[in-house]
């Protein structure tokens, strides 16, 4: 933990509200500790802005432990910045003294900007509501060990279930496709016996909702997976496609 400080130039997207046109504003920020996190760097900027009587930069964040999925910034052209992981887990030791850092919100029609770096991701909630669940009422469950699951399947399901719903996959995609997000949930439940009862309905409804929300199509570029802070792999998109095809054939929809 050897600490030094950085002097930085920040170019940050400022947009008052959803209808405002928005623009980049440049700020100088000195004395940033390399031990601080990226968001702590923005905290520092905001403290200075408030002291100068300006309106601080709004950004989404909450747990700051890389798990809630709230933080969502495109940093120097990459969702969550130069390292694998979430924005909140990015630390300033990844930057050099004198760097210029460009910070933007997620860019996608289905994630409209609310203010500055804050976007509306409720489309993701609606996709999950369309079918991203097992229909089991509380109290209706049998003993947990009555459903043995082979460990490799459980592990693969977990890998998909690790998705934090941050939306970096959409922000990374030139088509603003949400395929990796949808695939993660479809794949998680398709790998488990609990999820198989509703597999056809689930995949058809979730994909239909994804389309309705205006997300783009998948062209298998793989930027989503490359930028995913939780390493969700492209094999889950392949599984989604298989599930979709299978469901279409079986149901004729």
């Amino acid at each position: 933990m050897s600490e030094s400080t950085l002097n930085l130039t920040l170019k940050i997207w400022r947009q008052k509200n959803a209808t405002d046109a928005g623009a980049f504003v440049t700020y100088k920020l000195d004395g940033v500790s390399t031990d601080s996190s990226f968001l702590e760097m923005l905290d520092l900027l905001n403290l200075q802005l408030i002291e100068q009587g300006e309106v601080p930069v709004a950004f989404d964040h909450d747990c700051r432990e890389g798990i809630c999925g709230a933080c969502s910034m495109v940093i120097n052209g990459r969702p969550h910045g130069p390292e694998r992981g979430t924005t909140c887990q990015l630390h300033m030791r990844a930057f050099r003294n004198g760097d210029t850092i460009v910070i933007e919100p997620w860019r996608a029609k289905s994630f409209p900007v609310i203010k500055d770096l804050v976007v509306n991701r409720s489309s993701f909630d609606r996709i999950i509501s369309a079918g991203g669940f097992v229909s089991v009422n509380t109290g209706a469950a049998q003993d947990a060990n009555c459903i043995p699951v082979p460990k490799p399947d459980a592990d693969e399901a977990f890998d998909a279930a690790a998705c934090i719903g941050c939306g970096a996959c959409v922000a990374a995609c030139k088509n603003a496709s949400a395929m990796l997000f949808v695939a993660a949930k479809v794949s998680h439940l398709a790998m488990l016996p609990q999820g198989r009862v509703e597999r056809e309905a689930r995949v058809l409804k979730m994909v239909a909702q994804m389309d309705e929300e205006g997300f783009g199509a998948c062209s298998n570029t793989g930027a989503c997976s490359a930028e995913c802070p939780k390493n969700i792999g492209l094999q889950h998109i392949a599984r989604l496609n298989r599930e979709y095809q299978r469901a279409s054939l079986l149901t004729g929809k």
Partner: peptide, 22 residues
């Protein structure tokens, strides 16, 4: 004990042993 049953039924991917048990 019912919590674990409920969560497994929902598809929560708890850690498992090689025999498939939790």
């Amino acid at each position: 004990t019912s919590i674990i049953d409920q969560c497994v039924a929902q598809g929560v991917p708890f850690a498992r042993e090689y025999g498939g048990m939790l």
